[in-house]
Design a protein around this nucleic acid. Structure first.
Lengths: 247, 247
DNA sequence: GTCCAATTGTCTAGAATCAGACCATTGAAG
DNA sequence: CTTCAATGGTCTGATTCTAGACAATTGGAC
């Protein structure tokens, strides 16, 4: 071609040459469904979409999906019923955290991985809030955001985490960007197990409520900088809480 | 279980039940490698890592990787040589954009998809800059950032895009979060083809240089809000440019 | 010139995954 | 009480992907 027969052994390709696939389809599917359940995207008593539809949405074959569903059924997360009006029903309630849960969850994760997840979440959620605050919101969108905020505020303790998640995800989804919504969902689920291992305490909830209100206000005000700052403060609180349990 | 034999047909699972895999391993691998080449992560004349190592990094078998490499070789992107000091060498130079390239690239993408990509990029890059500005930077990190900035500024036109990419990605990678770096790389490659279809013009470069400097300054100053704002302005310019060609 | 190490090239057996057809069960509607 | 539509359950053959062993090529070191 030209005068470069064999240059240096390539400097540092890194981030682009990351894994194309995280694992096999079965494992990834189990993980996804499990997170959908734990995140409360499909609540207790509700059912997953029909197998054929779900398989199509997840981009996998029905056989693989069924294996995953079966695994979750055997693990006690789902109750599968056949016949019309049948389906895979969610049979799972987030257990109250017990002492030692957090440490156990952490050993499954590793410190670097935790930092990675927290940083990632900080970036994408701040970014999403910023984008949304820049957007011209329709009345409907404003209502949705307010509604989610109200729902967190009068949540029963058992339902708190679920509504908190719904609030955070709503911000991402309201931007209208599926990619961004997916990134935020992904970021959140990487810390779900850890957050679920922390008891939901009154003072924390009150603190969070103030911050949630500030986030919503900044977005509704159309103030990107304030929105980013508010999310950053909120997430920094959570991160500090987690790091605190580590030390 | 309890008194919920068949509740409503599930409200809106959405973003969590997105595809588990984008396509087959072969296609995804081709796409990845192609983007690594187009993004200049592996520059002209350099070679990809050895097959065994690359396969391991990408999490696929060597057979699948080889198929992908072969496809890129036949498409004229790579030159594969065997024996010691052999490898898959990049034989590709970004072609000067010709009229109609942009429109062609756009028809392959769709308007919604473009908006999605632009929004996603805006969020993750703003978030990354914000996070980095919050971080206590080591002298080495500060130097890296300054170096990337300087490299963009005295780039030859043919090398401009590549160094621009390196600057933007450096921000994400300096946060130390692989997830965030991957997200930014992903965001960028979703608009590469479009940007490559736009000629690199003097005035745009000068404008971008000022904005790049502002971004770096805000980060080095440790001012998250300013960093986020600077990135937002910069990307808004690019986005406007693209949208302009659409109308 | 011989040897050696790094690299791509080839083959095979087996597992995972897929697409699609067909069966079985259920509960509601008529 | 029969029918029917929606759903999970099962089977099969084709395709893709994997893991690993082994062969061939190349160019430098000695």
């Amino acid at each position: 071609m030209d005068s470069t027969p064999a240059r240096a052994p390539a400097p540092a390709p890194m981030s682009l040459l990351r894994p194309v696939r995280a694992g096999n389809a079965f494992e990834e599917t189990v993980e996804r469904l499990l997170q959908a359940v734990k995140l409360g995207v499909v609540a207790h008593g509700e059912k997953l979409p029909p197998e054929r539809e779900l398989a199509a949405r997840l981009g996998i074959s029905r056989v693989t999906l069924r294996e995953a569903i079966r695994a979750l059924q055997e693990a006690g997360y789902l109750d599968v019923r056949r016949g019309r009006y049948g389906g895979a029903f969610v049979v799972y309630r987030p257990p109250s955290p017990r002492k030692g849960d957090l440490r156990r969850a952490l050993t499954r994760m590793g410190e670097d991985e935790l930092e990675d997840a927290l940083t990632f979440r900080m970036a994408v959620e701040c970014g999403a809030a910023r984008v949304l605050a820049t957007t011209e919101l329709t009345p409907g969108q404003r209502e949705t955001l307010k509604a989610r905020l109200a729902e967190v505020n009068d949540a029963a303790p058992a339902d708190y985490r679920r509504r908190d998640i719904a609030f955070h995800l709503a911000i991402a989804e309201l931007t209208g960007s599926p990619l961004l919504a997916a990134a935020c969902a992904d970021a959140r689920l990487r810390v779900t197990d850890l957050l679920n291992a922390i008891p939901v305490l009154g003072p924390n909830i009150e603190h969070a409520a103030v911050q949630h209100a500030a986030i919503a206000a900044a977005i509704l005000d159309g103030d990107p900088e304030a929105a980013g700052r508010a999310v950053a403060e909120h997430l920094e609180g959570t991160a500090a809480l987690l790091r605190g349990f580590l030390a």
